[in-house]
Design a binder for these strands. Sequence first.
DNA 1: CCGTATTTGTTCGTATGTATT
DNA 2: CAATACATACGAACAAATACG
Lengths: 270, 270
Amino acid sequence: MPDTPKWRQIAENLRQKIESGELGRDGQVLPSELELQDTYNASRNTIRDAVKWLVTRGLVVTRPGQGTFVVTMIDPFVTQLTDDGAGPGAESTAYASEVAAQSRKPETSVPRVEIKKADGLVAVELRLAEGTPVVSRHQQRLIDGTPWSLQTTWYSMDLVTQGAVRLIQAEEISPGVVNYIEQVLGIKQAGWRDRFQVRPPDRRETEFFHLPDDGRIAVIEIVRTGYDESGQPFRVTVTTYPADRNQFVMLAGDVPDESVLRGAAQGGTG
Amino acid sequence: MPDTPKWRQIAENLRQKIESGELGRDGQVLPSELELQDTYNASRNTIRDAVKWLVTRGLVVTRPGQGTFVVTMIDPFVTQLTDDGAGPGAESTAYASEVAAQSRKPETSVPRVEIKKADGLVAVELRLAEGTPVVSRHQQRLIDGTPWSLQTTWYSMDLVTQGAVRLIQAEEISPGVVNYIEQVLGIKQAGWRDRFQVRPPDRRETEFFHLPDDGRIAVIEIVRTGYDESGQPFRVTVTTYPADRNQFVMLAGDVPDESVLRGAAQGGTG
DNA sequence: CCGTATTTGTTCGTATGTATT
DNA sequence: CAATACATACGAACAAATACG
């Protein structure tokens, strides 16, 4: 008997059976804890330790009163982060079109608009002093009824006082906010920078995305700062996506126009 | 007493104390399990359930014989994924220069070169039939002695038979492989596509990155496919990074030339 | 609708092993 | 070597959610 704990051996054995398909068929997949006790000659707590490890790895889920089920992989949604050549600002309308291209039903909540004081990240990215008033527009986005992303964009209040009054109205700005700002103020988005990181979800994200509250599923946070032609930042957007159902694609230079929206192809790293 | 379990209440209480700094000072931070039993009037197993939740969330680590410690955030390393204007192929040499720019010491292992048959992902990306011979070049990269990324690149064997013989030599190709292929064969990389996803680490990654074996820390996998000027793919690179110590930056259009390499600025989403 | 059986969740207790100081 | 602290493993009891007759 090696020095690997018994619960770990049981977990590995179950994992192998799951991945080989031996334990992954119809509705209820894993034997009950009571049965596993007999199978592995272990106490119920040891069995539960093994199952918990599988849960943490995302291989199974447990449901009280029902049993333990193998997890069916969510069909990932692919987001293209680079401009697709449809002109500046195309990225802000990209959401609906990309979703439609994948034959899925997008939904976007009515924006929640707030006027706040710039703090930390927002102040730094927009190069404003802390406390400067800013407009924040927050939206929730769903695909096929599944929560898919949370997005908040901050603009300096200066844009509003200069005439972009629709920024503080709680309604969709249809051709895209970036287009709207260009039309009203002549401020054109010349480029943007995305900062990409993976972190544990906060409470709001855990709730909205229906993530397990043990924080084992991370969220992907993308901070996009948009700059005008003079190099001045005029908006910063923070979007979070649950890491278990999202992929991203970036293009550089000339890439053949094949579908960049395809399912995940794993494997092949051996 | 609400219906939230006792272990969860204890965990939330500890979390709050940690985040407020009440329990996050010198060396050993959390009281021992024995002390916590008295503090919260709970059994040791209940205390352990609470602490385990904190461990899963990455807030603390436990060390046998020592105690439970709050986790100090690793200083993240920032990778720029877009071309920085240094010409085609610049991205393949970007690693060392970016690391140097952050005043850190990069190390790259000698490439492990293998000749294999194209399977799954590689066959699809390179548009080869499964079983076609390919060259794989694998490298491990460290920063300041910390494992930072695992990278494998596949090339069709045709490139070797056409003259790019250094591809099958187990040594660094100094100006960059993309540059080498262009010089020897005239195949120029006109563009690339990055596919970005977050997934649990496999065994090799868990070992190399020293990740906890419960899989709670994900890896970021970037699949970069490079295309020549005729739109033909000629290389595919899979790089994995541990999600807890890496950030990425992508630029589009005109972005002012400020430092894109800065520490993470959290907060500000309230 | 009700009651029962099944299944997972929570909580306690106890004992022993292993790593560190 | 001894004390401390976390890790593993067992057993037991009750609660809560679900399925089913």
